[in-house]
């Protein structure tokens, strides 16, 4: 079994520089299988050029963040939604 992933906790620092709320407690729905999980539970690959988060159930790509030449590319088309409590907002 392939165990070269970490989890959403590992990506939270980098994502905190982009998103206002704590992503680990946010819930995301996978656009492929429909599973809704805490982002902390996603399988995260940090060794790619950037960060790739995959669904813990079906391994579909949920989110990608790539930093290229002073631009950040945030691709979230693999999730139907990301939900979080309003108390999380600054």
């Amino acid at each position: 079994m392939n165990h070269d992933y970490l989890d959403g906790n590992a990506a939270a620092g980098e994502l905190s520089s982009i998103l206002a709320m704590d992503v680990t407690t946010a819930q995301s729905q996978c656009a492929n299988c429909g599973a809704t999980k805490h982002f902390a539970e996603a399988h995260v690959y940090m060794q790619a050029p950037g960060v790739v988060a995959r669904c813990a159930v079906c391994e579909h790509v949920l989110l990608r963040v790539v930093n290229v030449r002073h631009r950040v590319f945030l691709d979230m088309h693999g999730m139907t939604f990301l939900s979080f409590g309003t108390s999380q907002l600054p």
Partner: peptide, 9 residues
């Protein structure tokens, strides 16, 4: 340092 980070674990 950046943090503290994470509210789930």
């Amino acid at each position: 340092l950046r943090g503290p980070i994470g509210g789930w674990f």
